[in-house]
Amino acid sequence: MDAPRELSYAEAIAEATDQAMQLDRSVIVIGQGTRDRGHIFGTVAGLFEKYGPERIIEMPLSEAAVAGVAIGAALDGLRPVLILQRTDFVFLIMDQLINQAAKWRFTFGGRGRVPLTLRLITGKGWGQGPQHSQSLHATFGHFPGLRVAMPTEPDDAKGLLLNAIFSDDPTVILETRPLFARRGEVPEAPYTRPFGRARILRPGSDVTVVATAYLLPEALAAAASLAAEGISAEVIDPVSVSPLDQAAIIASVSRTRRLVVADASWAPFGFASELAAIVGEKLFGVLSAPVRRVTLPFTPAPTARALEQAYYPNAATVAAAVKSVLSPPV
């Protein structure tokens, strides 16, 4: 791979899409706003001008119809990337996604393939309110047949998207709007990143913090502030939800004996709860404190800015959770 240079998360997605379309003419993009000046938050910038309307397809306001077209195109040999500007719109396509695309390989004894990539954007903040702010990674992770990722770093955003596009299985990639401006080193040449491999972004010895989506930068900020107080927090980005790198998380918690899960969704039946159950089952008797979950309040997201600020956990919330598992020890 070439020497890395710095890109934003959105730029990394745009580059991955461009490279995939250069490498394979069967790759097409379907979405709303592909020709608008915002270019879906910059993630498809320049692509319509380069590839034209036959491969950059502006979709109508009918998610269910377009999902049927995308799945049909995948079954017919194309590699569609379907973009929904809000994760919440996916409810309109769930039957086709879950009962058809996710089950196709199993239904036909491994002979069928649905190389569909579904990009979903969670609109946290910005006054998005209850119907444009939901992160549904736990929902998708519940169903066999779907690969589910939540990249947080720009290099993962590029590598996982290229992996998804050239996979023969349906893949859901969840992106959080505030992360589009996040910058990091990204190699220029095309490359893929594996699903099911977590990343330790900050090593530590006192407690393990596993964080998703926008809470990953918040967890890193919390770890930095805790270090000034003599607390060493290991921060892990799970990267993908399904498959989940259980081994890396278990190895970390085996050393630190404490776990905080900071998840950008609700606690009941969610990712944080599942991870707490996995660690509880595998490390019963090893933990020095109960697993602590940092999640959204169990209510729909508000729209008013002042309420949003109170609603979403932040670095201070994560730091408080870490301190709660360190004192008193069990």
Score class of each variant (00 low, 15 high):
G141V: 12
H132G: 02
S133M: 10
R183H: 06
A211D: 02
A20E: 07
N99M: 02
G159A: 06
T192P: 06
T256D: 01
Y51D: 04
A70M: 09
L287T: 07
Y311E: 03
P238H: 08
A223R: 00
G42H: 00
A304E: 07
E175I: 08
W266I: 13
I121R: 07
R111W: 09
R305D: 08
S133W: 08
R37L: 12
L220V: 05
T122S: 14
T152F: 00
I56M: 14
F271A: 11
S225P: 11
R305G: 05
R183W: 02
Q22K: 12
I165C: 06
D76P: 04
L326Y: 01
M59Y: 14
S167C: 14
P194M: 04
H142T: 15
A213C: 03
F140N: 08
S205Y: 04
E175W: 09
I13Y: 00
F298D: 15
R293A: 09
Q19I: 05
V186Q: 05
T317H: 04
A189N: 12
A247H: 11
R292F: 11
A262Q: 11
A189W: 05
R79I: 08
F91I: 15
T107E: 15
S167D: 15
V330Y: 07
L259W: 09
E6Q: 11
P130V: 13
P329W: 02
D237P: 01
T303Y: 12
F271T: 13
G110A: 06
A198E: 00
S273L: 14
S133A: 14
Q85H: 11
G33T: 01
R55A: 07
Q22E: 13
L92W: 03
E153R: 10
F91G: 14
E281S: 09
V330A: 11
T43Q: 00
L287C: 07
A224T: 07
H137T: 13
T17Y: 02
Y9E: 01
F48N: 10
N314A: 00
T139N: 13
V260G: 07
V69G: 10
V291H: 03
K282P: 04
L296Q: 11
R35Q: 12
A211S: 02
P328T: 03
G159R: 02
P302K: 03
V261A: 10
V172R: 04
M150F: 15
F41T: 01
R5Q: 09
D206P: 00
E274K: 11
G285Y: 06
V279G: 05
D88A: 06
D169L: 08
L118T: 09
E281F: 07
R305K: 15
P53T: 13
M150D: 10
A164R: 08
D18H: 10
A267R: 12
A321L: 02
G159W: 05
G141K: 06
I71M: 11
Q19E: 13
E274Q: 13
P243L: 07
I236T: 04
Y9F: 04
F284G: 13
R35K: 14
V207S: 00
E58L: 09
P238S: 06
P238Q: 05
A264G: 06
P115I: 05
D2W: 08
G109Y: 14
L82P: 08
A320P: 01
I93K: 04
A221N: 12
P217M: 02
R183M: 01
P144R: 10
A181G: 14
S252G: 03
A251I: 10
F180N: 03
L61F: 11
A211M: 03
D263S: 15
F143W: 15
A320F: 00
